[in-house]
Simulated scan of single mutants.
Amino acid sequence: MQFTHFDTDAFLRDYWQKKPLLIKNPWEAWSDPLEPDDLAGLSCEDGVESRLITHTDMDGGWNVENGPLPEDRFDQLGDENWTLLVQAVDHYVPEVSALIEPFRFIPNWRIDDVMVSFAAKGGGVGPHFDQYDVFLIQGTGQRRWQIGGACDSDSALLPHDDLRLLANFEASEEWICEPGDILYVPPGVAHEGTAVSEQCMTYSIGFRAPARSELIGYWADDLIADMKDDDRYTDPSLQAQNNPGEIRPEAIDALHKMILGKLADRDAFARWFGEYSSTPKYPDIDWRAQQSSGIDQLRAHLASGHPLHRNPASRFSFIRQSDKSIILFVDGESFPCTGHTAIFAEILCGRGQISLDPVLIESNDVMALITRLYIQGSLIFDLQD
């Protein structure tokens, strides 16, 4: 799916992380990439993250059930006030994964996943705010979106173990989204969506925004893992001081330098962040190819015109080191690339489907990288193409 009318530059300038925007059906031809029954089926599978949220108007109570859900649970729900949420549906349904492509003007490492919701009339998840940007694509049915003010960690929340619902929500704007419409909501903006039709599908493309505490914590953990126990503070020029209780400025300076010297290594941080940010959302899922293939077999597939596809569950990005050298990051691993391999790596990060030039197919280094990524499940062939 592609847009027919959407000004990317104007959006980034005027709205991205600034204010909400309702985008009226910008698609060439909108159609739902998923049926409600298929979404319900996913929520019943082991390993798929899902939630069922029900709301009772009589007492204002919210209830959350985590998947996998029993198949007969949906027969018990009735026709109103419930919502099914399934995370990372793009990992399992290529047609849902394709919804991300028009938003590739945002860097790969910022994209999280596509959550899909189905709501009966009156269904929703309550007034809340997110810590990340989100594009809310309306599918089947209609949903009323109400937009409130800016929120932060000090905003009052209702007491609930599983939901972060705002205690005080006042709407300043309201829209009814029709099929194909897109609502963009920046981080920290209060919003609430309620299904106004009997069936309502919404596709939420979410983006990652690492917290400072998260970056410092995980980066420090990675550094500590490689540190040696004998890397310690020394003071060979120590002089006697009047009061032994004082921690002298020169000691603080030396200790501070010990820490900053490691934290300030930009190249080491860049490599770590590339690996960290490309780690799959669900790293315990095994996507490896069921049948092993060697370089010659994969080269034959490519030469026959079969395109490579990125696994929708995999993450790809790169860091440029020079005009001829980059580091490719795929699923938490790094691959130094030069020459033809660097050319291939840039193509790989920029496209979801890749058909290679014969020069790249003949490169043993390129094919070795393709074979490695294919075996680990990051690249796949659709031999029916």
Rank of each mutant, 00 (worst) to 15 (best):
I100V: 15
A195V: 08
L369D: 01
A171D: 09
N25C: 05
M258D: 13
F381A: 01
W30Y: 15
S378N: 03
A167G: 15
I216E: 03
R248M: 15
H128N: 07
G339M: 10
G149H: 09
F335E: 05
A300T: 09
A303P: 08
E95K: 01
D32Y: 08
S363K: 10
T234N: 14
S172F: 08
T202E: 04
E250D: 12
I380M: 15
Q384T: 14
L328A: 07
D385H: 13
D14S: 10
I327T: 12
L373E: 05
E333Q: 14
A40G: 10
V64R: 06
K257H: 11
P26K: 11
I375C: 11
D130P: 02
A251W: 10
H5P: 01
W30P: 05
D229H: 12
N25Y: 05
Q384I: 11
A167M: 09
Q17M: 11
P36R: 01
I326C: 01
K24M: 14
P312H: 07
A313R: 05
A220M: 13
W27I: 00
E198W: 08
I295Y: 09
L298D: 03
A264K: 12
E275C: 15
F273A: 10
Q2P: 05
V64K: 03
F135V: 05
L328Y: 03
I319Q: 14
